[in-house]
Design a protein around this nucleic acid. Structure first.
Length: 411
RNA sequence: GGAGGGGUACCAAAGUGGUCAAAUGGGGCGGGCUGUAAACCCGUUGACUUCGGUCUUCGAAGGUUCGAAUCCUUCUCCCUCCA
C-alpha cells in the first residue's frame, strides 16, 4: 500500500533512489519512524544547497515521523571525498565547533520544535567518533568492510581512475559515516538515512553494516542533485553563497534570490521549497510567471525570516522595480550634513556603500552607464553630489546596475 | 628515499628575454532587447590616477641583464612513476 510520506516525497521531486522502496513503504505505514540526515560542518552556516535536505526533514515531521539532525562534528574532521577532486582542507577544531553551533540554529528555525513526538533530535557524531578505540573499532566494524568493495565505490573509484591521490584518512570516511548510522540505529532507534544522491555510496554502506552487524533492516533514501535549468549548481550566485542565515544574508537579498529564479525552474521550486500543497500549486500553474515568482519568494522567505519580513521585502521590491522608487528594506547609508555640504564625489559615495569597494570599478561602471542617482545615469566620474540631489525627505537612491540599490540619507 | 612533470589573473589555458597588466575560452560585471526570465548582441574584467601616467602582479626569496612570467640558484607546494 502506498505511503503518504513517500508519495508526497516523490511528487515533490525529492526522490532519487531508495535501498528498498516496498519494504520502506510497509514500515512507514505501520510505524512512525526516526530518520536522519547528516550535515557537514565545513562552513559557518548552511546555504540554499542544503535546503532540499531540510525540506525532507520538514516533510517527515508533517507525517508524524521524527527527524534526527546529525551534525558532522567528527566526520568534518576527516573530510568527505565524495564528489571532491582534491583533498579538502581540514579545518581547525575550534572552527568546526563554532560552525556546528551555528548550523544547529538554522534547524531550529526550519523545524517544528513543539510537538514531543516529531521535534528534531540533534546529535553530533564527534561525541562517539571522537573517542573510538582504533583496535576495537577495526575488530568490530572494520571486519565488515572489504577493501575490494570499498574500492568499487564511486567516491573512491573516481579518484583512483583519475590517478588523483586519496589519503588513507579520507578513505576511512565512508566507514565512519556507516558507523554513524549504526550508532543512531542502536541508540536512537533510527531506521532511515536520507541524503543527496552523492551520498548514495555512504548510505548503502551504513545499511549494509547494520545488516551484518546487528542483522537489522534499515533504509536509505536519496534526493536528486538540484541543478538550475541553466545547468549550474544551485545555491551560489555572483555575490556568493545564498545563506540560510540572517546574519550572513539580508531578508531582502534572500527574497530577491528567489524572485530571480529562471522561468523554467519556478514550478519545480514551488514544489520543492514551499509548503504549498501540490493541489494548490496545480491551481497556480496558469498564473502569470512573475506572479508565481513572487509567491515563491514570499513562501520561501517567510519560512526562514518570517511572514512580516517577507512582506516587507516584497514591498521594497515592488517600490524599487515597479515604481522605481525605494523601499525600507534597501540597505541604507547615513551621512552627516556637513559631509555633503561641499559636495561629495560620486566615486567616493559609491565606494562608501557596499555597492563597490574599488574606485576603478566605479569609474568603469560610470563609463558603461551603470551608476544612477535617483534613476538618472551619472555621466561623469567627476560628478559631485550636492544637498539639492537629496529630495525633500533628505535621501537619494544610488543604483549600481538595475538590481542593486542603496538609499543614502542625510542625518 | 630515487626519477620525472608542474605551480600564470575568478576558473581553464597560452606565453619560454623586450611589442606583457599578460592571447583565447568560460565565468563575472555593465549596457541593449525584455518581464527583476531565458536566448541573443555590444562593452568591460589588477589597483590608484590630476587620464599624461604611476604602482603592484605569473608559487616564495635571491641573482644574471639596460630589460625577466620567460634564464640561473635556493626554498616551497602539488602530481606521476619507482622503492
Amino acid at each position: 500500500m502506498e505511503n503518504s510520506f513517500l508519495s508526497e516525497f516523490k511528487k515533490r521531486n525529492y526522490f532519487n533512489q531508495c535501498t528498498n522502496y516496498e519494504e520502506l513503504e510497509q514500515l512507514m505505514n505501520k510505524n512512525k519512524i526516526r530518520a536522519y540526515i547528516g550535515f557537514d560542518c565545513t562552513s559557518s552556516s548552511l546555504h540554499v544547497g542544503s535546503l532540499l535536505q531540510i525540506m525532507c526533514l520538514r516533510l517527515l515531521q508533517k507525517y508524524g515521523h521524527q527527524p534526527i539532525v546529525l551534525l558532522g562534528g567528527g566526520t568534518t574532521r576527516i573530510g568527505d571525498p565524495s564528489g571532491k577532486e582534491e583533498t579538502r582542507k581540514i579545518l581547525p577544531e575550534k572552527v568546526i565547533e563554532k560552525n556546528t553551533k551555528n548550523i544547529e540554529n538554522v534547524f531550529k528555525i526550519f523545524l517544528k520544535t513543539k510537538n514531543k513526538n516529531t521535534k528534531p533530535i540533534f546529535v553530533n557524531n564527534y561525541k562517539w567518533l571522537g573517542k573510538l578505540n582504533y583496535i576495537k573499532f577495526l575488530r568490530k566494524i572494520g571486519i565488515h568492510f572489504t577493501i575490494n568493495k570499498m574500492l568499487s565505490f564511486d567516491s573512491i573509484k573516481i579518484r583512483l581512475d583519475r590517478e588523483q591521490s586519496l589519503s588513507y584518512m579520507e578513505f576511512n570516511y565512508m566507514i565512519l559515516q556507516a558507523y554513524d548510522f549504526l550508532e543512531l540505529n542502536k541508540n536512537k532507534n533510527c531506521s532511515m538515512q536520507i541524503g543527496g544522491s552523492d551520498q548514495w555510496g555512504n548510505i548503502v554502506n551504513g545499511v549494509e553494516l547494520i545488516k551484518r552487524h546487528s542483522n537489522k533492516q534499515v533504509f536509505g533514501l536519496t534526493t536528486p542533485l538540484i541543478t538550475l535549468s541553466s545547468g549550474s549548481k544551485m545555491g551560489k550566485t555572483e555575490k556568493g553563497a545564498v545563506w540560510l542565515d540572517k546574519k550572513l544574508l539580508t531578508t531582502y537579498d534572500y527574497w530577491q534570490f528567489w524572485r530571480n529564479t529562471d522561468d523554467e525552474d519556478v514550478l519545480r521550486f514551488l514544489q520543492m521549497f514551499t509548503d504549498l500543497s501540490l493541489e494548490k500549486i496545480e491551481e497556480l500553474k496558469n498564473k502569470n510567471i512573475n506572479q508565481l515568482k513572487i509567491i515563491l519568494a514570499n513562501e520561501t522567505t517567510s519560512m526562514l525570516h518570517g511572514k512580516a519580513a517577507a512582506a516587507k521585502a516584497e514591498q521594497t521590491a515592488k517600490n524599487t522595480f515597479e515604481k522605481k522608487s525605494v523601499g525600507t528594506d534597501l540597505p541604507t547609508l547615513i551621512l552627516k550634513k556637513k559631509q555633503v555640504i561641499n559636495g561629495i564625489n560620486i566615486i567616493d559615495l559609491v565606494t562608501a556603500t557596499n555597492l563597490s569597494n574599488s574606485k576603478s570599478e566605479v569609474r568603469r561602471m560610470i563609463k558603461n552607464k551603470g551608476i544612477k542617482i535617483n534613476n538618472e545615469t551619472v555621466e561623469s566620474d567627476k560628478f559631485n553630489i550636492l544637498l539639492n540631489n537629496f529630495g525633500k525627505e533628505n535621501f537619494l537612491k544610488l543604483s549600481h546596475g538595475k538590481k542593486n540599490h542603496v538609499i543614502v540619507k542625510i542625518n
